[in-house]
Simulated scan of single mutants.
Amino acid sequence: MALSIWEALAVFAAGVGAGTINTIVGSGTLITFPVLLATGLPPITANVSNALGLVPGSVSGAIGYRAELRGQTGRVLRLGVTALLGGLAGAVLLLALPSDAFDTIVPVLIALALILIILQPRLAKAVQRRREANGTEPRPNGGPVLHTGLFLASAYGGYFGAAQGILYLSLMGLLLDDGLQRLNAVKNILGAVVNGVAAVFFLFVADFDWTAVLLIAVGSAIGGQLGAGIGRKLKPAVLRGFIVVVGTVAIVQLLLR
């Protein structure tokens, strides 16, 4: 499908915005997906094109957060395997289920994730007090509960992906004893893994628009660097507030679709 110059500029700008917001918190799909639909692409084609195009943005954002990734290689590898399997499952579901299959449950999931984000400092302190009372140590990789949650969040990410980063941050913030910025760096790696495995799958089995993919890819790569520059400077409380605002907007937009 041929895009006009104005449509191409809109898709590129949406890619920049999505790459920026994905690196800071997530929900970039809520910028790019409506723009692709507005150009006339069918929903599934738009979704697949979007997933392919956002891969460079995820990689760019992860590179921008490389300082916060130091010392987390083992964690990233373990959680990355879970994310890869979940992302592949979600990509398969995209082609097997109706396009509106998650419309009801996703806003609820995001709302629960936002509640966890807001309560995370208090919950973390409560968990720490309980550990001290019981003489136990936190699991460095979150244990089976975190892996199960990340698998399900990654399956959703491979399926559609809006606010997937918020789900990751809420799960890791609750179950891992680490700073929000370091967890955000891991989130960017997991996003890159999910988008990447979904993209490879879609290359062989789904229809997509190469022009849209390339425009979003270039834009999101630029946005990834912008997002890393902004996100790494935010204090944890400010970053948490930004996550809540973006997540609330995501819920409203999903309910209005």
Rank of each mutant, 00 (worst) to 15 (best):
56 P>D: 09
1 M>R: 13
171 L>N: 04
114 L>H: 09
138 P>Y: 07
109 L>R: 00
11 V>F: 11
50 N>G: 10
137 E>Y: 04
40 G>T: 09
27 S>T: 12
5 I>G: 08
70 R>G: 03
192 A>E: 01
32 T>C: 09
103 D>L: 11
223 G>H: 01
38 A>W: 09
70 R>C: 07
12 F>M: 08
70 R>P: 04
205 V>Q: 15
189 I>A: 06
227 G>M: 02
122 R>S: 14
247 G>I: 06
197 V>F: 02
80 G>C: 14
178 D>Q: 01
76 V>E: 08
180 L>D: 07
13 A>G: 15
138 P>Q: 10
216 I>R: 05
34 P>S: 03
221 A>T: 01
224 G>P: 01
166 I>E: 04
208 F>Q: 05
244 V>T: 09
252 V>E: 04
125 K>Y: 06
114 L>F: 11
35 V>K: 01
77 L>Y: 12
96 A>F: 07
232 R>T: 13
193 V>M: 01
115 I>E: 09
53 G>Y: 09
88 L>I: 12
71 G>F: 13
253 Q>L: 15
54 L>H: 08
176 L>E: 06
196 G>F: 00
140 P>K: 13
195 N>S: 10
41 L>Q: 05
220 S>H: 03
64 G>I: 01
175 L>N: 05
143 G>L: 12
157 G>V: 04
76 V>Q: 06
212 A>Y: 02
143 G>V: 11
242 F>E: 02
105 I>K: 05
131 R>G: 13
239 L>W: 02
28 G>A: 11
116 L>N: 11
157 G>H: 05
130 R>G: 12
102 F>E: 07
159 Y>T: 04
110 I>H: 03
48 V>C: 05
194 V>S: 02
13 A>C: 15
116 L>R: 13
132 E>Y: 00
199 A>W: 02
122 R>G: 13
112 L>T: 13
240 R>E: 10
95 L>V: 14
81 V>D: 08
162 A>P: 07
21 I>V: 15
229 G>Y: 06
93 L>Q: 02
201 F>T: 06
94 L>Q: 07
212 A>N: 05
129 R>P: 00
147 H>V: 03
104 T>G: 15
179 G>S: 15
125 K>P: 00
103 D>G: 11
89 A>L: 08
59 V>C: 05
140 P>M: 14
145 V>P: 04
100 D>N: 15
181 Q>E: 12
142 G>A: 12
149 G>M: 08
144 P>S: 12
58 S>T: 13
180 L>N: 07
86 G>I: 07
189 I>Y: 01
22 N>H: 04
65 Y>W: 13
171 L>K: 03
48 V>R: 00
228 A>Y: 02
94 L>E: 03
54 L>N: 14
235 K>Y: 12
237 A>C: 01
31 I>A: 10
